[in-house]
């Protein structure tokens, strides 16, 4: 099975989300995309209330853009990470229509990616029930943990028989910065709580892993798990055009990002 591999490098938050939606819109074959964020940015779930679940004043003060995703789930501060997005028709590879099973099969690819860089990640089989607006503060079905701390979480959108799943793999995690950007009575306590529940590659291995190393690990994980024959590709002209429109008319607007 052939799979497109697209590395779009650093992009701003609005462009990143616009590209994912555009690929989903035109998807006829599987695409694995990897990317980073030009500046620390928060993405919120499709249905999250930004006013209640984000420290909006601190985001403004520190010029942290907020972008709403078309996928579900909770808020994420995208900072020192590599983000993957995997877009495919759901009937491919006998990919289960069952949402949890599709998470599981993608989680297996991510486990192999972490294994490549020397980390043994575990697939979380049961969700931890913790009411929190922060994605990484709780682990859901088929998300990845190391020593009971979350290291990667994902969110999904289904559209007319097509799947978009995306999520970050944490290279490093700034607990204090995260605690400051989300509502709390005591940011220090929140940061301490996050330390107990979230880890990163740097924390586990004690070294900085480069973007390129992460990208090749992700590619390797998907290749091994799905038996893909990857070919390097770029966005098509129609994908670029739609992404430009989506960025302008949707992802960079308060109407979309701050909707309640």
């Amino acid at each position: 099975m052939k799979c497109r591999f697209i590395d779009t490098g650093h992009k701003d938050a609005y462009t990143n989300m616009a590209i994912d939606e555009s690929i989903l819109n035109f998807c006829k074959k599987p695409t694995l995309r990897v990317y980073q964020w030009t500046a620390p940015s928060i993405s919120v779930g499709y249905n999250q209330n930004v006013g209640k679940e984000i420290n909006f004043d601190n985001c403004k003060k520190h010029k942290v853009p907020i972008v709403r995703r078309i996928t579900g789930g909770k808020a994420v501060l995208h900072d020192k990470e590599v983000t993957y997005s995997f877009i495919l028709p759901e009937n491919l590879l006998e990919m289960p229509r069952d949402i949890l099973k599709s998470y599981k099969v993608i989680a297996q690819a991510l486990v192999l990616a972490f294994e490549t860089i020397g980390i043994k990640a575990i697939i979380q089989k049961q969700p931890q029930k913790l009411a929190t607006p922060i994605c990484f503060n709780s682990s859901n079905w088929y998300e990845l943990t190391v020593n009971n701390k979350k290291i990667s979480g994902s969110a999904q959108r289904r559209l007319k028989g097509k799947i978009l799943q995306h999520g970050p793999l944490l290279i490093d995690f700034d607990y204090e910065k995260n605690a400051m950007l989300f509502p709390s009575d005591n940011a220090k306590e929140l940061a301490e709580g996050l330390k107990k529940r979230i880890t990163s590659i740097k924390r586990e291995l004690g070294i900085d892993v480069s973007y390129n190393e992460m990208v090749s690990a992700i590619k390797h994980g998907f290749q091994k798990n799905f038996k893909f024959d990857f070919f390097e590709d770029e966005l098509t002209n129609e994908e670029k055009k739609l992404a430009d429109t989506l960025k302008k008319e949707k992802y960079s607007t308060d109407t979309w990002n701050l909707k309640t």
């Binding site: 499709y46 996928t71 789930g73 999904q156 559209l159 007319k160």
Partner: peptide, 13 residues
């Protein structure tokens, strides 16, 4: 319209 479950967002046609 749109429905969101704990793990996914889906369109209803």
């Amino acid at each position: 319209c749109v429905v969101e479950s704990v793990k996914s967002v889906s369109d209803i046609f």
